[in-house]
């Protein structure tokens, strides 16, 4: 039982990271029906921005996170403007292939300028300590990741539920033409969605840096794909679904590593994707809402 609790706690911080990345996938999908495969790379850029902010300017970890979030928000908006907006009327497969192109572009631009070498995420910014509480080993990095992810998710929920901008985002994702009739600018709303989703990915990038202690230009691929699985598991396009899906995938991954064989953890996660697509493609929170007459 203690062992299980320990695995659960380990899974929570990883799950929080996946949840933050999954939110960006699901928000973008909700509004333009595009799986933004470059999303994991935005997370990677966020990790690098945080890295340099700490190692060059000696920023506090929170400052580094804010800095990365702002930088990636801008990056996300630019990517949407240059790569996706011109394809708004094109087929979905064209946009999807473009997203893969953007993903590779970001990976190898980073490799070119910053070398493919992995870098040690500066330990000075975050000194890890382990605490023993009721027989459970809890690290301050897990607490930090979990708590800051929860705060970000709470802020996101507040924005989406309560603010004028958030309501406009929901309106555009529900019915774009009707939203235009209300006076909502679709282009602006899509930009804001990319900005918010990308800034969450950037925060996740910093967390990945703290969690694994290293970063590299290809670090976005696997967490990006797993977060995508999380978004599909929760129901793509549904914000609370991404949060729940993220935690489930994170916990599942640590349980597989802890009890089974850590070599299989990726296979199990992608097995989940296949399973959902077979059993309930709309995900846990998804439902087919029929129109009422």
């Amino acid at each position: 039982m203690l062992e299980f609790m320990q695995q659960l706690i380990n899974g929570l911080s990883l799950g929080a990271i996946y949840a933050l990345i999954a939110l960006g996938y699901t928000m973008v999908y909700g509004i333009i029906k595009l799986i933004n495969f470059a999303h994991g790379e935005i997370m990677m850029v966020g990790a690098y921005v945080g890295f340099f902010s700490i190692s060059v300017f000696g920023s506090h970890i929170i400052v580094a996170m804010l800095f990365a979030m702002i930088a990636c928000a801008i990056l996300g908006v630019i990517i949407e403007k240059i790569a996706y907006r011109p394809l708004r009327g094109a087929t979905r497969i064209a946009a999807l292939i473009t997203a893969i192109g953007v993903s590779l572009f970001l990976q190898y631009t980073t490799v070119f300028f910053l070398s493919p070498q992995q870098r040690i995420f500066p330990q000075t910014a975050f000194q890890t300590k382990d605490y023993l509480i009721a027989g459970l080993s809890i690290s301050n990095k897990d607490v930090f990741i979990f708590v800051s992810a929860l705060i970000l998710m709470a802020i996101l929920q507040f924005i989406i539920r309560k603010t004028r901008t958030g309501k406009a985002m929901r309106a555009v994702s529900l019915d774009r033409d009707a939203a235009v009739l209300m006076g909502i600018s679709v282009d602006r709303t899509i930009s804001i969605t990319f900005a918010i989703g990308s800034s969450l990915a950037a925060a996740a990038g910093i967390m990945v840096g703290i969690y694994y202690s290293t970063i590299n230009p290809l670090m976005g691929i696997l967490p990006g794909l797993k977060a995508f699985v999380a978004a599909v598991l929760g129901g793509i396009g549904i914000v609370p679904g991404a949060m729940v899906g993220g935690f489930l995938i994170g916990i599942l991954e640590t349980l597989v590593s802890g009890y089974g064989n850590s070599l299989y953890r990726d296979a199990v996660v992608f097995g989940v994707l296949i399973l959902i697509l077979l059993v309930k493609p709309t995900g846990i929170f998804g439902k087919n809402t029929g129109e009422k007459v």
Partner: peptide, 15 residues
């Protein structure tokens, strides 16, 4: 074309 998963009040606010 009402916003189906928004409340009645929110729909009116969007107007």
């Amino acid at each position: 074309r009402v916003f189906s998963t928004m409340s009645v009040l929110e729909n009116l606010e969007m107007g």
